[in-house]
């Protein structure tokens, strides 16, 4: 199976390749990709250098252009596809129907992957993208069980890629409006879930408070494990309907996906590529996670048991889950 690894900077790209990534995915430093954070991502020359570095070592580079262009401003997204093609990218990862149609028409030699942001979660949707636009690989949303993935791969003719590690998003991908509700900006349109410009941390009475767009979303004891400042991982207090106050994680617990133990099952289900989330993370994270998963993939190929618990301290909230792959929802 192919290991697809994140890179938010040229240093991370080199770290991923050196640690054994078969492919690295990255994006331009603008709103055309879903990790549009300050100080992150690639300039055009940096991408070309990154592609040369990866190709010299037998690795591929996939460019995520996976936000949804705003009406009248498609030129920014069209230019990103053209520049990725010119830089020698092995594929572009797209979500928007209009942008996919443009890429298929204007860049017939460019390999197209369907982003998780497109939320194509059934054979009909995936086959439509494949037959209409020549999509070669679909990144499946993180809402499917292993059995459902196996059923899908039996009914499609293109490659499948699934997330195996990192930040977990349980919403129908590309459809979440929580960040928009709180800040006016979203991962779908602006490339940012919980934009840093709207996040505020403060120490209040010995506790660390995190606010997003003015909404208090976490209050943790100083020095205690803390999650990302996203609404979906927020801890809120509400009335339980019987006059009592209850406090808890309304949407989901602050835990990261770790599907290491499911790699053999995913392989059996026909999955072609395993994806690691985390373009916003450091080169230290990239190197450690890629090294661990490369070892796991090779162990799976040899039919050996999967290694356990190597990456716990890198996970959000320092807790891990197998998400929807194994249905154990509370």
């Amino acid at each position: 199976m192919e290991l697809v690894c994140p890179a938010g900077t040229p240093a991370s790209l080199r770290a991923a390749v050196d640690a054994g990534a078969h492919a690295v995915y990255c994006g331009f430093a603008d709103e055309t990709n879903a990790r549009n954070f300050p100080g992150l991502n690639f300039s055009r020359p940096e991408l070309a250098e990154g592609v040369a570095y990866a190709h010299a070592r037998g690795a591929k580079v996939l460019v995520a252009i996976n936000t949804f262009p705003r009406a009248g401003e498609q030129a920014l997204w069209h230019r990103a596809v053209a520049d990725a093609h010119a830089a020698g990218a092995d594929a572009v990862i797209l979500a928007d129907l209009g942008l996919i149609a443009h890429a298929a028409q204007a860049h017939p030699g460019l390999r197209l992957h369907l982003s998780v942001q497109a939320a194509a979660a059934n054979p009909d949707a995936i086959n439509f993208y494949a037959q209409t636009f020549g999509i070669r690989r679909v990144v499946l949303p993180r809402v499917l069980s292993v059995e459902e993935i196996a059923a899908i791969t039996r009914e499609i003719d293109i490659e499948t890629e699934v997330f195996v590690f990192g930040g977990l998003c349980v919403m129908a991908e590309g459809r979440c409006s929580l960040s928009s509700y709180a800040t006016g900006l979203s991962p779908n349109m602006n490339g940012v879930c919980s934009p840093a410009s709207h996040v505020a941390y403060a120490e209040v009475a010995g506790q660390q408070e995190a606010r997003l767009g003015g909404f208090l979303i976490h209050r943790t004891p100083k020095g205690a494990p803390a999650p990302y400042p996203t609404l979906c991982k927020g801890c809120f207090t509400s009335d339980d309907g019987r006059g009592n106050r209850q406090t808890g994680h309304i949407f989901e617990d602050p835990a990261s996906l770790d599907a290491t133990q499911l790699i053999p099952a995913l392989q059996k289900a026909g999955v072609r590529a395993l994806k690691i989330e985390g373009r916003q993370r450091s080169r230290a994270y990239v190197a450690q996670v890629v090294r661990a998963f490369r070892a796991a993939v090779e162990a799976a190929d040899r039919g050996e048991p999967m290694p356990e618990g190597l990456l716990a301290k890198l996970t959000e909230g320092q807790a891990a889950t197998t998400g929807a792959y194994a249905k154990t929802w509370r």
């Binding site: 840093a196 410009s197 120490e203 020095g223 205690a224 080169r283 890198l314 909230g317």
Partner: peptide, 22 residues
């Protein structure tokens, strides 16, 4: 590059305040 900045933040080893974007 020995430890990941987000992991240090998750564990409470590093705290930030003020302009988060900066």
């Amino acid at each position: 590059g020995v430890e990941d900045g987000d992991a240090l933040f998750f564990s409470g080893a590093l705290e930030i305040a003020g302009d988060t974007s900066a």
